[in-house]
Write a protein that binds this DNA or RNA. Sequence first.
DNA 1: CATAGATGTCAACAGCGTTGCGCTACGTGG
DNA 2: CCACGTAGCGCAACGCTGTTGACATCTATG
Lengths: 232, 232
Amino acid sequence: MAKTPVRTRRSGSQLSPEAIIEASLRIAARGSEDAFTVRRLGEELGADPTAIYRHFRDKDELLLSVADRAYGEILEGIPDGLGWKDRLRALAGGSLRVALKYPAVASITASRTTRRINEFRIVELILGAVGEAGLDGADAALYYRVVADALLAYVGQSAAYVLFAPEIRAGDESSWRREYRMVDPERFPAITRLGTELAEVSSEAVYDVRVEALIAAIEARAASLSKDAARA
Amino acid sequence: MAKTPVRTRRSGSQLSPEAIIEASLRIAARGSEDAFTVRRLGEELGADPTAIYRHFRDKDELLLSVADRAYGEILEGIPDGLGWKDRLRALAGGSLRVALKYPAVASITASRTTRRINEFRIVELILGAVGEAGLDGADAALYYRVVADALLAYVGQSAAYVLFAPEIRAGDESSWRREYRMVDPERFPAITRLGTELAEVSSEAVYDVRVEALIAAIEARAASLSKDAARA
DNA sequence: CATAGATGTCAACAGCGTTGCGCTACGTGG
DNA sequence: CCACGTAGCGCAACGCTGTTGACATCTATG
């Protein structure tokens, strides 16, 4: 009784958590062309869809595992030896890149916690960066959350956007060139005046500004702390 | 032949776009206790679920209309006569409040464009604020997008979070007090050291820091512009 | 007054995540 | 070395989702 659950993989076993996670990433990488469903996953694995439930409690648990694998991919792209600012920039850039590579995963996981190894590594990375910037204790924790939530929210939003059906995306994208050009100039003078510029803003530029704003906020907090210390 | 579509409501008509939107908001306001589905909406209206399709092409169009109504609710809460910073703060606070009031709507709409009247008004509000701060042209457009995307992303993330089934949310929330307390201190020294502080960060504080970081970024950009102008 | 169009009901479809049952084949205890 | 327990998998099915087409009704208008 109370056998220790044996970890030895059966030779006859066709599936494994690893194989399922990799198949999930392959499907997720196809973006909006291929929905990430349990049935599609079974097809990809050449097995019955419900066989997945022998390896993961439900789709949510699978998703968290897949997400953590994606976190690993982000970490791989961050070189050693960077200062804290460049480390955060590399994290931000890598997060967006991986999120857009696996949008189906990123869009669902953006408001979740995986509680798995690679998430711990990213948390440690951010905490290290804000610590290097000069924050500690409650400040470090607060600014960790600011950075983490901001990155997750934005990459999740971007991922959800590229997941939309092409016709929906086309409608949203053209709105700056259509509906926003036909507003009443009396009521909406700024929109009317900046119509051209609004249509030309690139997502990359927006992302850059947001990442730099985060870094500046950390720097400002650290500076105000050292000023207080000097005054005392 | 090419009749002008008559706008007169039929007396026998039980439903109307307005009534459907209001019923949608009632359901959405119940959060995770009551799913926002077409069938549930029919029940709320005392009508057949598919009757909705006589007033909206599909659920997406309904959702955009509902979202724009919610945008109106945000605008109602913003008093006149505020400076640009306080206007942005009021917008941020109101957005979060309304998003958490109707999470089902906010979580889906956060990466969309409604192209409707109240969205225009919010765009005009933000453009006015960044203009007052001293930005114009491409700069105003860029920083509009920074503000709008940041607000949408964060309130969408928050809304999605409160929509999760209670047991999922409980797991995520307790993770800082469980899994994150049991990590290997050798590999994750910062997590180990800051475990207590990490568990105690409040979402409100995180939101405040993010909003102030946005405002600071706008201010910094405006300052660098006026410096350039003075130098010339 | 007749008719065309708008509105609502109903049944049904395809797709989703998930569960229970039955079969097979393996690893291990006796 | 054999029998047994069970892990792994396939199959059918359930309840849920958004959506469609056929049909009925009722109203405003020519």
